[in-house]
Design a protein around this nucleic acid. Sequence first.
DNA 1: ATCATAACGCTTTTT
DNA 2: GCGTTATGAT
Length: 843
Amino acid sequence: MTNSEKQQYIDARREYIESQFSHLNPKQREAVMATEGALLILAGAGSGKTTVLINRIANLMRFGHASDSDVLPAGASPSDVDVMRSGGKQADLFAALEPVMPWRILAITFTNKAAEELKNRLQMMLGDAARDIWASTFHSCCVRILRRDAARIGYPDNFTIYDTSDSQSLIKQIMKDLNIDEKRFAPRAVLAEISKAKDQEISGQDYLQTYRKMGDQWHATIGEIYIEYVKRMVSVGAMDFDDLIANTVKLLDANEESRRYWAGKFQYVMIDEYQDTNNLQYRLAALLSSEWHNICVVGDDDQSIYRFRGATIENILSFEQQYKGARVIRLEENYRSTKHILEASNAVIRNNRGRKGKELWTRADEGEKLQLYSAMNENDEAQYVAARILEHYSQGRRWKDHAILYRMNAQSNQMENACKRNGIPYRIIGGTRFFDRAEVKDMVAYLAVLNNPEDDLRLTRIINNPPRGIGAKTVETATELARRDGVSLFSVIDNVRMYPELDRSAGKLAQFTTLIKELDTLRQNLPLNQFYEELMVRTGYASMLESKNTVEDRTRLENIRELLTSINGYLENAGDQPSLAGFLDEIALYTDLDNHDADQDCVVMMTMHSAKGLEFPVVFVVGTEEGIFPGTRAIGEPEEMEEERRLCYVAMTRAKEKLFLTCANQRMLFGRTSANRPSRFVEEIPSEHLERAGRTFLDRSSDWDGGIPSRSSGYESSYGSYGTYAARSPYDQRPQFRGSATGQSGFSTSFTRAMGSGNPAPSGGAYAPQRPKHTLASSGVKSAQAAAPDFKKGDMVKHKAFGQGMILSVQKMGGDALVEIAFDNVGTKRLMLKSAASHMTKV
DNA sequence: ATCATAACGCTTTTT
DNA sequence: GCGTTATGAT
């Protein structure tokens, strides 16, 4: 072909491929078609980043590197050009240039959920071929690599994975053995420090030496713990989360053969959420792309929220320096949020320095202004949120359209209660994970010991659980003997006869090892699920729980049975070769986020961190107060503060249509009541995007800059805007409270007391005395109480959210009552009367 | 050895 | 306020 024919071929090919991605915007398409070399995609919130990733993979599998190459396929002829131009059936054939095999594509995400979503969407688009794409998290990718190559770095291939609490137990043990005071060295902090050192690839020896030289005793001690920690981890064949990545990096670094194998395998490497990678993850990405040099990273520097665990925003800020010749594509069109939401978010994040700088825009409508509700206290705040949700529900929204986001898991309680008493179905994501429950950990420990008997930590956990007369003293001596002889704990108790020191408990220990061996035989001969049922019985764990028969033990029993469900789930998915080891891997890397089932019609509650990557029509960001969000730790620390602000940006940009921000003037947290001013982030939102309700604390006239305001100044300043609050209060829709600002506070107060949630303030307590008398503080309380007895058994009612129904029963509970109502459409619900009354009328 | 009670301290955020 | 752990009693 002539040069011009060649050019025509290339142009026609590019045009054809472009036409296959015409549903994307130009920037997105550019990112999809730039397949070769290093590529940084700066993808703002809601800019369709997953879509780009998926289409990019589709492009690779369909067309190979054709969209980004001037190479012609062998046997190309001018007539092919016409086929491509016409877009006929054969066009793909001529346009494709070495299509990429799915298993040569690696797409790394941050969470299992994101990986799962990626897999699902790929499968929808590409069919079964998508199954072979390596779409996984950093951690599970490393597990897969290490399961093959662990021997090369001195680990058994059945190595065990320790989660954070396992690691912490080990740290505690070590500190006990080394006589280190837990008060001066918080195990948490020690672990964090070790993790940091690992991320920097500093060995225990180097760490210790450096700090010894500097005369830094505190760090030197940590160095000692670090060394011992690594030693014990290796000796029991365990890796923690950091080790999974660190050891993979070590492997690829030190073992040329391994590196060539893995880096040679992955022709295209893609990393999502690149702004959240730490040094080790950066290194891993570099190593895995070191043969083909096709690395595409996607991220948003404004959404970097994992600095606390070593994520360095530098990775994304300096990508272009690290990968010479890298291309950069910015995706700035937002498809998620309305203008008010987006511009408010932009305004907040603009206060950060140290960012690449980017302004999201949208074609969407103005939408509604953000709502700021300044509540009296945490109960009032929760009640406000619940009331809004009920209101939306009655207007036709689904429960699952709503998300409640908070800074820390501890805040979920009040919200949970508010949902409960209003009959709102909800789900909490995160918090104590299922696999963190003691009884589940116990059962998992049995499994872990069977999988790897060297696992001393797990062995000590279960050796006397359920109680079998093996006391702490016995375990202690056995552990010492094991250490003395350099063998595992299991081998000591397995050979009790050789240890006269253990004479007295030899019988009990022998019984235990017999049990373990029996179980091991069963394990080899039964499918995993059946084996597990045997395990529950033979260990005596199930009967231990059954015999006690308390409510807690009942749930515990349910929980260990629930583990069976997990096993069955694993067996269904594992396909090829299910194994105990495989199951343990899976649950070690599992988090509660993963089973967030978007189909369930429930209000979702989670931390702002967990919310990353999700979107909801209605979002409530609660607890927007100085000291909570931003947290105390961030105040006075510019870097931390920027991280908090990014978190705020993440939280705000989750909302598609409605965004509510709430704060409380007074809040009980950790058993202490405190008065916080509203978050600075809220003040950073231009007022044209904001509507305020509640006791607005935001008038800048007040003089609280000196820190926490004195009681009286705080309440006085809030008082000035009280009228506004009354007019906008959701409660002014309730006839019995209309026109009375204090009606609501009285309601809250009496409610708080009724629920016995421990507000130490007496009725009309801490804040009431500051109130002028004419505000009817007491009559507000009365009206709340008067409202309650209006509903009685047999009454027909109409509820704003649930429609018509009949009251089945009214049960007095404290100053409130529990009503059971059979609704015509949504079934029977149990509601707290005082909350429900405001949404109900008699018919 | 196991149970009960009391003191403790502690809260970011997650793989 | 919570759950965890240290202590002492049975």
